[in-house]
Design a protein around this nucleic acid. Structure first.
Length: 108
DNA sequence: CTTTGTACGCGTCAGATTTT
DNA sequence: AAAATCTGACGCGTACAAAG
């Protein structure tokens, strides 16, 4: 598969798929921590840390899904653009050949 | 039927980028 | 500057087709 570093950099065109969504709501019902000031025991602190980590993982999980979805869409866009350009290119080549024929000096 | 190769999606981490 | 968000890379599991 050979995955080596940057991709988009080569072409220099802005990856449209990385435009940010206006608002990122939490996936499922996520309750914020009860005011951090009210935590004391190492036990509670550990639980809080675990909760924070789980929340972060959960958010990142969703973010990754969304990121992949956008990228897939972006790739589809590029592919259809390629298809269009290929057709266009073919037509231009044909036209060029026709014009060449018309303009070529006759040998009689 | 089993093995092998390939494609795909997922969760996670680390680092870059953007927002506050 | 800190927090939040995004994304490339990696490893893992699953599905499926082709080969043996």
């Amino acid at each position: 598969m050979a995955v080596t570093g940057d991709d988009t950099a080569a072409t220099g065109d802005m990856p449209t798929y990385q435009i940010r969504a206006p608002t990122t709501g939490l996936p499922q019902g996520v309750v914020m921590a009860a005011s951090p000031g009210s935590l004391h025991s190492p036990q509670q602190l550990a639980e809080e840390a675990t909760r924070k980590r789980e929340l972060r993982l959960m958010k990142n999980r969703e973010a990754a899904k969304e990121c992949r979805r956008r990228k897939k869409e972006y790739v589809k866009c590029l592919e259809s653009r390629v298809a269009v350009l290929e057709v266009q290119n073919k037509k231009l080549i044909e036209e060029l050949e026709t014009l060449k024929d018309i303009c070529s000096p006759k040998t009689d």
